[in-house]
């Protein structure tokens, strides 16, 4: 276990290095720089700025600086937000993203598992098929449409919730719902497939033949084992959801992390883009690892297989 743990950590570090390098060189070979704007800067001013941020060094030197920064856990100053370091930006944005993403995970599990069970349990009836269709529709809607519809319903028609902004739990409700619904749809499809399979498995047929039915059958023999694929899926999904979504953050005016993945690249904020990339990679590694550990606890066969 320990050796494997160590190996995974090393693998994660190697991945981070690779991602860091890939992101750095991809960005730096893309046309345009952080100080190219509608209103041209005086060439001298631009030069001074580039010198301040070390953008006038050779690419190799800059990469070396980025690498040593990474080693020291210092991503440097943001190029877009003049007085703010990348660390500050991340520290401000992460709690918001975690709150919305956490809420989305809750919604995803809360809706997804029952929906999947309904779809599996009643799969030959209209109810089950409607559940499947609902999930598919949720997956097919672009999330900006979903968010727009949610705002139209809850903020304008019913007037229950604020349409955007920060300030309290009420402000988190809609964004986390809109982020969580597609997640719920995916979870429900996974649960449905697994539960259907379980339903037809020898074990369950045996249990039914023995007269087991109702709650116990569903709970112990069908639901619990059906959660294995959900857990495997939740690893990467958690990382994705916790790092936020540009569309949701823009529509609900939330200062989360998701916007950075897009804006940093669009603004050529190299340091920030590298920062969020590394954070995302680390989160992804961590979440996958946790999911694997949980998976092993739940189903010891997994360890034997891998």
């Amino acid at each position: 276990m320990n050796a494997r743990f160590l190996r995974r950590v090393l693998m994660l570090l190697a991945t981070i290095l690779l991602v860091h390098a890939a992101a750095f060189f991809l960005m730096r070979t893309t046309r345009g720089g952080p100080f190219d704007e509608a209103r041209a800067l005086d060439p001298q001013v631009k030069l001074a700025l580039e010198q301040r941020y070390g953008l006038d060094d050779s690419l190799a030197v800059q990469y070396w600086h980025a690498l040593t920064g990474l080693w020291q856990g210092d991503f440097g100053p943001s190029l877009r937000y003049r007085e703010v370091s990348v660390a500050d930006l991340l520290a401000d944005a992460l709690p918001v993203s975690f709150a919305v993403g956490g809420g989305a995970l809750l919604w995803g599990l809360l809706f997804g598992i029952p929906l999947g069970m309904i779809a599996a349990g009643a799969r030959r009836r209209l109810l089950g098929q409607s559940a499947t269709t609902l999930a598919t529709v949720l997956l097919a809607l672009p999330n900006f449409v979903l968010a727009g519809a949610a705002i139209a319903l809850f903020s304008f028609t019913l007037g229950w919730l604020p349409p955007a902004g920060t300030g309290g739990l009420a402000h988190l409700f809609l964004p986390s719902l809109c982020l969580g619904l597609p997640l719920a749809a995916q979870i429900s499809l996974l649960v449905r497939d697994a539960a259907s399979e379980r339903w037809q498995s020898a074990g369950v047929r045996h249990a039914r033949a023995l007269g087991l039915s109702g709650q116990r059958l569903w709970w112990a023999h069908i639901l619990k084992p059906s959660l294995t694929p959900v857990l495997a899926f939740l690893g990467p999904a958690t990382a994705a959801v916790l790092t936020g979504s540009l569309v949701i953050e823009r529509i609900f005016a939330l200062p989360g992390l998701g916007t950075f993945f897009v804006e940093a690249a669009l603004n050529r904020d190299y340091t920030l883009a590298l920062g969020v990339t590394v954070v995302y990679t680390a989160l992804l590694g961590l979440a996958t690892f946790l999911a694997d550990v949980l998976l092993m606890k739940l189903d010891p066969r997994v360890e034997a297989l891998s």
Binding site: T15, L18, L26, T30, A273, T277, Y280, T281, L284
Partner: peptide, 17 residues
């Protein structure tokens, strides 16, 4: 491993590139 790494690169960085 290379595929994993590329998957972590933000999509928009990739698109712009």
């Amino acid at each position: 491993r290379l595929a994993d790494a590329l998957e972590s690169v933000p999509m928009v960085v990739m698109v712009l590139f």
